[in-house]
Amino acid sequence: MTVPASRVRRRPRTPGRLLPLLLATALLLPVAFLVVRGHQLVDADRELAERERLGVEYLRVLGPVTEALVNAQTAAVAGRSVPRDALDRAVEAAAAVDTRIGDELRSTERWAGLRAKLEGLPSRSLTDPEVAFTAYGEVTDLLLALHGKIRETSGLIRDPGSDSYFLQDGVGEEMPEAVVAAGRLVDLAVLMPQRPAAEQARSLGQLATLRFAALQPAGDLVDDLQTVVETSESAGIGADVLTPFDNYQRAVEALAALSQPDSRTQAVDLTKLTAARSQAQTAARELQPVILDELDRLLRQRIDQLDRDDLLILAAGGVAVLLLAALGASGWLPRRTGTPPGRDTAPGDPAETTAATRWEPPTRSGRPPAGPVPVLQPVGQSSESDRWRPFDAAR
């Protein structure tokens, strides 16, 4: 007897095919978050470096203003004609820079107040040198405060690099303070002989204070540059800074020695002290652009590195997205079963292996019946005699 096996139809495994797509989507979300977050951090660092470069540009024009103002103060205290040409040119150059980038650095209001004070200084020497000393001292204090404002708003004061931090500290804080204090030191030495004898003790105290105020920032500047030269990873920074740095260091040492009052007369040699101050100021004028150029180079190098890091982050994110998309697509696309033509079942289907057999009951002895062995016939196939049976009945 022939027993046909029931045909089992496969149901699509939709939940199993959705699993790779869901897994790829779940992995894509944290990858996208990391890429976006990394891009934002790199972009923030790049904006900070660009703003620091604006601070470097602003400090570059404040250097000539500082030097011209100190020279004008020395001339006013000494009773000479004040050289306004150099000061006016320096002020105009600084005003042009402030007009362009002052809003971003939030320095416009402070510069406007300083410029009004600078333009209000008399072109002629004041009759009272003490009044000139005080008036110019107030303006130089505002100028030093502007240096600090630029360092703060531009982010230079928070620079993360070791070399760039010491460079900005030296050129933006220590150098202008040393130049201003050295000018005041010489001006006070000029005023001391003109004061009454009763004020000589107070004058010596002021001289010691100004001597310390001039030598401390100068020494800090020397320390900053020594640290940069000795520990810098840049091969060219030492050669660029070394020569003007040595000149400045020698000038500061001479200024320190000559500003010490004589033990007998309690006086200083004005001629030698003025010459030492001029040498220190000239060395600072030569050193400032070198430091600013090196600082700007380090910032540009950092910006280029940040641009490369940003490209790597975006490229890694793109590759991750492509791989996850391929993973999801491979699990979602249907697979070809390879069923031969004319069949309704796929290879390996249980319905295909189900067969019909011609069954003979066993004998009473339990032995298999004699005769030919039963032949297994797959479902859907017939023997040769079954095929010709209708023709035999017709005959």
Results as ranks from 00 to 15, higher is better:
Leu273Met: 09
Asp220Gln: 13
Ala276Ser: 08
Glu294Gly: 07
Asn247His: 04
Thr274Pro: 00
Val241Gln: 01
Leu306Phe: 09
Leu306Cys: 13
Ser234Phe: 00
Leu292Trp: 08
Leu299Asn: 13
Leu255Asn: 04
Leu312Pro: 12
Val222Trp: 06
Asp223Leu: 13
Arg285Tyr: 03
Gly236Ile: 03
Asp223Glu: 13
Gly219His: 06
Gly238Leu: 00
Gly219Val: 09
Glu230Pro: 03
Asp307Lys: 05
Leu311Thr: 12
Asp223Thr: 12
Ala235Met: 00
Leu298Val: 08
Thr243Ser: 13
Leu287Trp: 09
Val222Ala: 15
Asp307Leu: 09
Val229His: 10
Val228Cys: 02
Gly236Tyr: 06
Val290Phe: 03
Thr265Gly: 06
Gln266Pro: 10
Arg250Tyr: 07
Ser259Gln: 11
Leu295Met: 12
Leu270Gln: 11
Arg285Met: 03
Asp309Lys: 15
Gly238Asp: 06
Thr265Ala: 04
Ala257Leu: 01
Thr243Phe: 15
Gly238Thr: 10
Ile303Lys: 08
Phe245His: 03
Ala284Met: 05
Leu273Val: 05
Tyr248Ser: 01
Arg277Trp: 07
Ala218Gly: 12
Thr265Arg: 02
Ile291Asn: 10
Gln249Val: 08
Leu255Val: 04
Leu287His: 11
Glu230Phe: 07
Gln266Cys: 06
Thr227Leu: 10
Asp293Ser: 13
Leu225Glu: 06
Glu233Lys: 12
Ser234Trp: 00
Thr265Glu: 04
Gln288His: 15
Gln281Thr: 14
Thr271Lys: 14
Ala280Phe: 04
Glu294Trp: 01
Glu233Asp: 12
Leu287Val: 03
Leu221Asn: 02
Pro261Val: 01
Glu230His: 08
Val222Lys: 15
Val290Asp: 12
Leu221Phe: 02
Tyr248Gln: 05
Arg297Ala: 07
Arg277Ala: 13
Ala275Gln: 15
Gln226Asn: 03
Ile313Thr: 02
Ala235Ile: 00
Ser278Asn: 02
Asp296Tyr: 10
Asp224Glu: 10
Ala257Tyr: 03
Gly219Lys: 09
Asp310Met: 12
Leu225Pro: 09
Asp246Ile: 11
Val241Phe: 00
Val268Trp: 02
Gln266Glu: 14
Asp240Thr: 08
Ala267Ser: 07
Glu286Asn: 09
Ala267Cys: 06
Ser278Met: 05
Lys272Leu: 12
Lys272His: 02
Leu298His: 13
Leu295Gln: 15
Pro289Met: 00
Ser232Val: 09
Lys272Ala: 02
Glu233Gly: 07
Ile303Glu: 07
Gln301Met: 13
Gln281Lys: 05
Leu242Gln: 01
Leu221Val: 00
Gln279Asn: 14
Leu270His: 05
Val222Arg: 15
Leu306Lys: 13
Arg285Trp: 00
Val252Cys: 02
Leu306Asp: 09
Leu270Asp: 05
Ala256Gly: 10
Thr231Ser: 03
Ala280Ser: 14
Ala283Arg: 07
Gln288Trp: 14
